[in-house]
Simulated scan of single mutants.
Amino acid sequence: MSIKLPFLKKKQKKPLNDFELINIPSHVAIIMDGNGRWAKKRGLPRIAGHKAGMDTVQTTVRAAVKYEVDVLTLFTFSTENWKRPKLEVDFLMKLPKEFLHKYLPELMENNVRVETIGDFDSLPAHTREAVQHAKEQTKENDGLLLNFALNYGGRDEIIQAMKQIVTDVEQQQLSAESLDEHVFANYLYTKGLSDPDLLIRTSGEQRISNFLLWQLAYSEFWFTETYWPDFTEEKFVEALQDYQLRKRRYGGL
């Protein structure tokens, strides 16, 4: 005999056409995980998963525009990803150019602005050129900010910030006494951006993997078993609906 406990019942989600645009997270960050496992499950090479995941990026951008998110930050390539096989890394470095060639006209049409965070200068020239072109083309747009975390690592970001702070103190451009959370945040790649309200991670993993270590201090986390290439608008809305049900107290009552 099984006993059904009311407090364990799954929350009923509203259908897409009934979704209310209230309490929408201003800044959504996503760890796009599971491309390789998606491909392996289908007997395909890992790069096939990355290619499928590229189209999911645009699906998610469309959803973010539709549901009036202000900033969408996507963990695209980490500083640790250089350890992967050269063939896979080379393919990943070509994806931004392919993505932007295919979708830049739509991004322009939807008033999306492209930006990046991370060690941009260390990327291959062809990757930098494609992304910089998109930045230039979209710089006047004032809709969704599509923020690619490229060659990004949270610990590296904090170390680079500290090095610059030390230099500024030594050069008397900053006093140690004036250093607080606000000042420190202005030394990070995300200077001028609000912290993510919601972090989404796909593929079933439940860790942040060196992503936005400072900025995620009070973010809401949402995890799904879905691999990134299978992440849909419906899944995005499910995450937004779950966020709408949460109470953010920031340590208060």
Rank of each mutant, 00 (worst) to 15 (best):
T127W: 13
V65F: 05
S2Q: 12
S203R: 07
V71N: 01
P96C: 02
E220M: 06
E140G: 01
F75I: 03
R128C: 11
R62G: 03
K135S: 00
Y67P: 05
K14I: 15
G204M: 04
R201N: 07
E129A: 03
F184N: 00
T60E: 01
Q164V: 08
P196E: 03
F19H: 04
N151G: 07
L240M: 01
Q132F: 08
D55I: 14
E129Y: 01
Q172E: 13
I47A: 01
E238H: 09
T59H: 08
L72S: 02
K51M: 06
D70P: 03
R246N: 10
L174A: 05
G53I: 11
Y227H: 12
I200C: 00
T127Y: 08
I24N: 09
F231L: 02
Q244L: 05
M32F: 11
F7A: 04
R155N: 03
G53A: 11
I24L: 13
L174I: 05
S209Q: 05
K247Y: 11
I159Q: 12
F99M: 08
T116G: 01
L144S: 07
A239Q: 10
A64G: 06
K83S: 12
Q164D: 06
L144M: 05
E205A: 03
R84K: 13
L21N: 14
E109C: 02
T116H: 06
F211D: 05
L193W: 00
E238F: 09
H27D: 07
N35H: 15
T202F: 00
E177L: 12
M162Y: 08
E20I: 15
Y218H: 15
K86D: 11
T60P: 06
R84C: 13
Q12L: 11
I200N: 00
G252K: 13
L100H: 14
G43W: 11
L8P: 12
L144V: 01
P45R: 00
E115I: 03
T202N: 05
K41G: 13
E80F: 06
K51W: 04
E109K: 14
P96T: 01
M93G: 10
G252A: 15
N151R: 04
A130T: 06
D55M: 03
L240S: 00
I24P: 04
P25I: 01
G43L: 12
R248E: 09
Q173H: 15
V237A: 14
D90M: 13
V57W: 10
S78I: 03
N141G: 01
G154S: 04
T232A: 09
Q171M: 10
K11I: 14
R46Q: 02
K66H: 14
F223L: 02
K163A: 05
H101K: 14
E233W: 08
E136C: 06
A29E: 11
T59M: 10
F231Y: 13
P45N: 02
Q171S: 15
L123A: 04
R62E: 13
L188F: 03
S203D: 04
Y187P: 07
I22T: 14
Q172V: 05
K83I: 09
W228C: 03
I165Q: 07
I165P: 02
W214A: 01
I3C: 08
N17F: 10
E88N: 00
L179V: 15
P15Q: 09
K102C: 11
L179R: 09
W222F: 08
V61M: 09
M162C: 12
D242T: 10
A185H: 12
